[in-house]
Amino acid sequence: MTRKVITVLRTLALIVIVAALLHECAIAAPPSAAVSVPAASARYRIALEREVAANFGVAAPTARVAAQIHQESIWRPAAKSAYAIGLSQFTVPTAEWLPTVCPSVGPPDPWDADWSIRAIACYDAWIYKRVRAATECDRWAFVLSAYNGGIGWIPRDRALAVADGADPMLWWGHVEHYSTRAKHHMKENRSYPRRILWLLEPAYIRAGWPGAAVCT
């Protein structure tokens, strides 16, 4: 083998190693996109702190739920999507059902910002009590996935994970990869907890909202 060939092979090997390292760094690195906390959020902060504390107690994840509202509507009470409305983007059927498990929220009114704040705090807590996971980070990923797509998907997705040898108690790298949802719903549902927990919650904590990042 000539010296020139050896040099080329070494160069190619170095390129492969560098590419692999860059890929690993990209996976491990937190999202770099800057997030601005909307000024409108200040109008609802006291109400959100009160409702999250009422539902979760002393270690209330206020910044986490604030990040969730940011993801849902960017703090716009009049926000409307294809299926959901209001600050916390409830569908009409879910809004009508919620008082049966969260009577304190009052009659359904997702257009009302105060109702939406009571509703998202109570609904998150209701889901949280019904899911278990290996870590709090994984548990909250399950909670947010259920809020976005319905809690009924959690046991189905876990069953698919188990059938393929994955751990049903881990969201990241395990259950998150399994579902029979339509592709566009799958993409939205899986990006939902990732964006809230890894990008938005840290931004709200940096802005001074109460709470501690659950995924680090």
Rank of each mutant, 00 (worst) to 15 (best):
W115N: 04
W115V: 07
I117T: 00
R118L: 03
A121W: 10
A121N: 12
A121S: 15
A121C: 13
Y123A: 07
Y123P: 01
D124R: 01
A125R: 05
I127R: 05
K129H: 04
K129I: 03
R130T: 09
R130F: 09
V131L: 08
E136L: 02
D138P: 00
A141M: 08
L144V: 01
A146V: 11
A146I: 12
N148T: 02
G149N: 07
G149F: 12
G150N: 04
G150C: 07
I151M: 08
I151F: 08
I151G: 06
G152R: 07
I154S: 11
R156M: 09
L160M: 11
A161S: 07
V162N: 08
G165L: 10
G165Q: 09
A166T: 08
A166N: 06
D167W: 10
P168I: 12
M169A: 01
M169N: 06
M169Q: 06
L170W: 04
W171I: 02
W171M: 02
W171C: 01
G173W: 04
V175N: 05
E176W: 03
E176M: 02
E176C: 00
Y178K: 07
Y178F: 12
S179N: 13
T180K: 00
R181Q: 14
A182D: 15
K183H: 15
H185D: 14
H185L: 14
M186N: 13
K187D: 15
N189A: 15
S191Y: 13
Y192A: 02
Y192G: 02
Y192L: 04
P193G: 11
P193D: 08
P193L: 12
R194P: 04
R195L: 15
I196N: 08
I196V: 15
I196Y: 12
I196A: 11
L197N: 00
L197C: 01
L199C: 04
Y204S: 12
A207S: 12
G208P: 12
G208S: 13
W209E: 07
W209L: 08
P210S: 04
P210W: 03
A212H: 14
